[in-house]
Design a protein around this nucleic acid. Structure first.
Lengths: 96, 96
DNA sequence: CATTACACTTTGAAATTCAAAGTACTTTAT
DNA sequence: ATAAAGTACTTTGAATTTCAAAGTGTAATG
């Protein structure tokens, strides 16, 4: 077992780290909020949220607000748990 | 400017994060020490140290110990500075 | 002398990242 | 009413990155 064993590969990337950080402190964030906060392009953000979705760390809700489509994301309980583990591992590694 | 602006792309990957963490607390680490501590394969580790070298965040010294080749790595002053910045950005993001 | 071990390096396939272009509407202007 | 511009994503595929298998060169061992 190595010193980076609990560093979660799914959170390795700064955009995914940002998505999770935002969702840990906000119940919901929609596509455009994430995009603005992270300064990501549409396609780029889409692929990162998809990766987190696939792991079931976040979940999507699609709805209409008035006539406009709106996609909002929230963190799952698994996502919360895994992210905390990741942060702990990070702190252990860095603070060594 | 987004919330992940000071997250350094070069340190995004867990193996590179691990290399830097090790080199921040040890004056030197050789190839095999890094390999063992990180549980990486040879080729994989080689590509990650090369990436950090290219940014001039770490430097390499090749020598012979007895008759055996030995490659050891250390962090540069730029590397130290940038890594600290990265850690600060991480803490800001996570601890938000 | 042949075989195994050590310390990396090279190679190229697989996976990931990214932005440009596309889709499906809605809103605003003419 | 029709055209043009905007919104909210999704799809696509090229570029980059990651990774491990195989390769290189030397050393030690039987």
């Amino acid at each position: 077992m190595s010193i980076i064993n609990d560093i979660n590969k799914a959170f390795d990337h700064r955009i995914r780290l940002g998505i999770m950080s935002i969702l840990m402190v906000n119940d919901y964030a929609d596509f455009n909020l994430l995009k603005d906060l992270l300064g990501a392009t549409d396609g780029n953000l889409a692929s990162h949220v998809k990766a987190l979705e696939k792991e079931e760390y976040i979940k999507v809700e699609k709805q209409f607000i008035g006539r406009k489509p709106n996609t909002r994301y929230s963190v799952t309980s698994v996502g919360k748990k895994e992210f905390k583990k990741h942060i702990d591992a990070l702190e252990k590694l860095i603070g060594k």
